[in-house]
Nucleic acid binder design. Structure first.
Length: 282
DNA sequence: CTCGCCCTGGCC
DNA sequence: GGCCAGGGCGAG
């Protein structure tokens, strides 16, 4: 599940391969839910363009092009951006044995001779790619709250302070705070010892500050581990991240709490699963 | 704010 | 053979 640390890991690895390069060719899979801009149009828009920057806001990557347009990328649940030099990450044995190209690669960029090709693979197609015309305001970006890596207490108070929903749901709401997903939300709430069901607006200033610090801390841990490889996520060179081994509570239902050894609980909050410690989190 | 939907592999 | 995961979005 690519969240901010995974997307930032991808950005750092891919940016040097893209920035300053000119797109020589674009290969796409068939039109699908994945393409917010139809593949034929996307290809026509990209060929001949030079990539000037690869930015990130929350879980979105934004490639800027030399004509002022941009390409928005989202990895969804199972998206993988990787270099063609790396063996197709997490390729199932069955797919590898099948003849022909990997059916889950929806987009491939030829960046000229000597440059590795960059591929976007996504088994479930919950990822997204969209071309943004020069000067256009992109509603998906405009909706986002402040990036969670640039979180300070004041910004966090503004993002969370008046929300009446469960704090867990607010952490996941990208319009409040951009970049935190289910894994890092559970981790941060555990570190801050806050119950995921607490009403966000009812948090005391001390608790809010502790949670903001915990969000920063778990994102930093995830980033320095090179992301978490649960499900399909891999770094662009095909290697696994390390945070899945270091995680505290996420996906550890019934396992002992790292702090008090009581079994961790899993509940559903706002339609999303939450794993937490009934004893430590108040 | 909550719900259902998009998608597909994996697991009961 | 059916259900679930889950990010994000549109509908209610």
């Amino acid at each position: 599940m690519p969240e901010l640390p995974e997307v930032e890991t991808v950005r750092r690895a891919i940016a040097p391969l893209l920035v300053g390069r000119t797109v020589r060719g674009v290969y796409t899979g068939p039109p699908s839910y994945f393409f917010l801009t139809p593949p034929a149009e996307l290809a026509a828009r990209l060929v001949g363009r030079t990539i000037t920057d690869l930015g990130r806001h929350g879980k979105y990557l934004i490639a800027r092009l030399d004509d002022g347009s941009a390409v928005l990328l989202h990895l969804g649940m199972t998206g993988q951006l990787f270099t063609a030099g790396a063996e197709s990450p997490r390729l199932r044995t069955r797919d590898r044995a099948a003849a022909g190209p990997d059916p889950h690669v929806h987009l491939e960029l030829d960046l000229g001779e000597g440059a590795p090709r960059v591929r976007f693979r996504d088994v479930r197609k919950l990822g997204k790619v969209k071309w943004i015309p020069p000067g256009a305001r992109e509603p998906r970006l405009a909706r986002l709250g402040p990036d969670a890596l640039e979180l300070d207490d004041e910004r966090f108070a503004r993002a969370v302070g008046r929300r009446r929903g469960a704090i867990k749901s607010v952490l996941l709401d990208q319009s409040a705070l951009a970049g935190v997903g289910n894994l890092y939300a559970d981790e941060a709430l555990f570190l801050a010892r806050i119950r995921p069901t607490r009403r966000a607006s009812a948090l005391r200033p001390r608790e809010r500050a502790a949670l903001a610090a915990a969000v920063r801390e778990v994102l930093a841990r995830g980033l320095s581990a090179g992301g978490a490889s649960l499900d399909d996520w891999v770094a662009p060179d095909g290697s696994d991240g390390g945070y899945q081994h270091a995680r505290l509570v996420y996906g550890r239902e019934r396992q002992p709490c790292p702090a008090c050894q009581a079994p961790l609980t899993r509940t559903v909050i706002g339609g999303r699963s939450a794993t937490w410690c009934r004893r430590c989190q108040r």
